[in-house]
Design a protein around this nucleic acid. Structure first.
Lengths: 146, 146
DNA sequence: CGCAATCTAATTGTGTACAATTCAAAGCGA
DNA sequence: TCGCTTTGAATTGTACACAATTAGATTGCG
């Protein structure tokens, strides 16, 4: 147990977290290609499929993404015809993003993705629930202390 | 329980994984700024601190990164003077990356990072171990089925 | 009212990520 | 040995991520 033990890759929790996240996103890609979305575009669409309309700030809070990421991404979704981007008349600083009919249709085609992905992680129901709880606990702590 | 249940953000395991990974990397940044490394550069240096020398292919296998990511990253580490990049004489296709004295010094300054990060996740020893095991199990499964 | 402080997006710049392609070196079979 | 295949990096192109800054709109306070 030397003084550099903490600097070994295998003693880090961050590295497998980072690696697992990337690998899973990579696994999504073939399925997402079918609906011509990237992973980030997909999670943005997921929010809209549930809420129909949201402003950029709220979307960023939900996805933990900032405007530097969302602005170009939403412009791309708009150019594909899946969302509209309209300034709020009550407050011109706010940009509302809303689902279009074409974006709503996409939901139909996307609904087969989650069940097909589910098996890739190879975790039992219990393990998945445990992981889920730990991840949200960690996210809460990471954000709580600023 | 409608047919779109799977498309809700809160029913995904991928999203908290993705979010937690990003948030934790973000938490590293202030500490990594002290040694002027990005997170990806840091994990590459961690490998070198343990192994002194490695070729690009092996490094990519360890970190789950490809040459498109590693080539510019290693050039940057070379320009900072932390590593050398030399073609293997036995096989000119292979590029060996080795730690320089300056890179070795950096290990001293970096060793305080892991303990300072440790608390951010706010998980108990047991929870961290559970998460660690589940993550490596998932990574194994994600890669096993190609 | 007037204007400074605040708020929300957009922009800019740097650094990943990765698929696909390219290119040179090495291995290999007829 | 000559071509063919394979291999390992590098390159190219697209798409995030995020810090820092900018720009415009709104709010609030004196």
């Amino acid at each position: 147990m030397d003084e550099y033990e903490g600097l070994k890759l295998e003693n880090q929790l961050c590295f497998p977290l980072y690696a697992c996240s990337k690998e899973l996103v990579r696994r999504y890609q073939p399925f997402l290609d079918e609906v011509e979305l990237t992973y980030t575009q997909y999670i943005a669409m997921m929010v809209l499929w549930q809420r129909e309309k949201i402003n950029v700030k709220s979307l960023g809070e939900l996805l933990y993404l900032d405007s530097g990421t969302l602005t170009p991404l939403l412009k791309k979704l708009e150019s594909k015809g899946y969302v509209s981007r309209v300034r709020a008349s009550e407050d011109e600083r706010v940009l509302n993003v809303a689902l279009t009919d074409k974006g709503r249709e996409l939901k139909q085609r996307a609904k087969s993705i989650p069940p097909r992905i589910a098996g890739c992680l190879g975790l039992s129901e219990t393990e998945a629930k445990t992981m889920y709880a730990l991840l949200y606990k960690a996210i809460g702590n990471l954000r709580a202390e600023q």
